[in-house]
Simulated assay, not measured.
Amino acid sequence: MIRGRLTVGMVVGCTVTPLFDALAAFHRSHPGVEISLLEDNSDRLIEGVGDGTIDLALVGTASAAPQGLDTLTIISERLVVAVPAGHPLAERERLRLRDLAAYPIVCMPPGTGLRTVFDQACAAQQLQPVIALQATAADAIADLAARGLAVGILSASMAARYRDRLIARTVEDLAAPALLALICKNPRSPAVRELLVHSRQAFTAPDGRQAAARLR
């Protein structure tokens, strides 16, 4: 039986029932391991895994493999623009990043995977959109966008949850995916290795598809 302590990080505002399932299954199998769970922005979680203060973390990232860390990708999907019916962008079938320049943006804050992907795409074209509003929860971004306060930037799966009040449009030059991934530095640690086993099981549905989780 494994004993010791395991520190697990989770990106702030992320709804990740499969991770909780994995932690519960791990606890049942190894009750001698004390589990600590903390929330933070992805960039700080990556730093914590890198310096060894966090054993394993679920993060949003723009990179398939943060340097020096082992990575298990859970979700990979592109970002979309989310606007209410009647918004000028809702009437357009084809959008490019420069088309967003005339509108304020509501997005997740720096340090999250979605924001990193968006910022990198804009920087590559030397665009500086106005980030008027920031929120860590998809519900808040959707609510603000639905009220017409700003154009929402969400992942495709997030936007699908709000199709009753928002119209999602893909952006042709915002194709780089945002990722939700489990990262660790020492996969040979017995506790980390066992938690990864439970995580793979929890995040994979019986038919082989990835279980639901929401990207941040």
Rank of each mutant, 00 (worst) to 15 (best):
G152I: 02
V171P: 05
Q67S: 14
R78F: 08
P88R: 03
T112S: 01
T71G: 09
Q125E: 13
A160E: 07
R94H: 15
R78Y: 06
A85L: 15
Q67P: 09
L174S: 00
R161A: 08
T170G: 05
R163Q: 10
V151E: 00
R165P: 08
A85M: 14
Q67D: 14
A168P: 04
L69R: 02
I105C: 01
D70C: 11
L95G: 02
A156M: 07
A90T: 00
T136W: 14
A140S: 12
R94C: 13
R161C: 03
T71D: 04
L133H: 14
P110D: 03
Y162C: 05
G113F: 02
L72F: 14
P177H: 00
T116I: 08
I105T: 03
P104E: 06
Y103F: 14
V171Y: 10
L69N: 09
I167F: 05
Q128W: 11
P177I: 01
A138L: 07
G113D: 02
T116M: 02
L79W: 07
A124V: 01
I75F: 15
A82I: 05
D143E: 15
Y162H: 01
A137F: 14
A121I: 07
P129Q: 08
D164T: 05
A123F: 11
G86K: 10
A121E: 02
R98H: 12
I153F: 00
L72H: 11
A85D: 14
